[in-house]
Amino acid sequence: MNAALVLAQGVQNQMSTGESISFWVLGPLALFGALGMIFARNAVHSALFLVLTMLSLGVLYMVQQAPFLGFVQIIVYTGAIMMLFLFVLMLVGRDSSDSVVEVLRGQRLFGTILGIGLAVLIVAAVARSLSEVTPTGLQGQEANGGVGNVENIGRSIFTDWLFPFELTSALLITAAVGAMVLGYVDRHTRGRKTQKEMVEARFRGEHDRPSPLPGPGVFATSSSVATPALLPDGSIAPESLSRLIESAAADSFDDERKAVAGGAHAAEARALNPTSEGETK
């Protein structure tokens, strides 16, 4: 009886070929991602290496009969959290290089101490799990004595661990509301107007004109921005010329002005470019 149990356990402790292959592929990948995340110079590259590590871990979970954990890892960590990181990094700008100045005093010392402490904890936990804990199979419908592992996770969260679960969500909501309270600036205090208010202000005459400035007559008769647009009655719309053109030498636009005003020469049938009279001959 006892021997049979030990034997069964021995079978369970064996890794299948597929599992070991995926471990030896994904393990180094995860490690490579972790190292790359630390040593990459560019912040976005660093974040991407972290994504690689998280994806490898997610697939490892799936291989070890925890598909729910694996996919939630991918959706929540790579899909939402790392995406937020990338979002912030992109907002800050791609060339924001590392600052070497220490803002918090003694940060490195404490960081090292806490890091070593965390490493010791993890190593101890792994060592204990290797030697003392007997593994429970997660395979198939009979895992954890019943209906398979998604249902079991749901059941234990909403029965045995309901209070810690609710506490965690309360903590997260507090954090989210706090961030919003700190970050929110009211539209009225910023003095920004809505689109409707802007339209009304324009028509009330608080701005120079209700519509945007007309574009120049480019491509109608010439390809020069110095060509003004024409109003329906054929007169020149002065706003259509850029103010920059005023600062250029006036006589350099003489030909264009003449051409548009119709004072130059009769337009050729096929010429879109108004040329001076000498050239047409």
């Binding site: 598909p67 729910f68 996919f71 959706i75 899909g79 939402a80 990338l86």
Partner: peptide
């Protein structure tokens, strides 16, 4: 056939978006 089939689609779409975001960033 996975016990978490519905999550696979969500996971795939959340990874696929990296392509778009990174394309935007890496174009410079």
């Amino acid at each position: 056939e996975l016990p978490v089939g519905a999550l696979v689609v969500l996971a795939c779409s959340s990874v696929g978006v990296y392509g778009i975001v990174l394309a935007g960033w890496s174009s410079g």
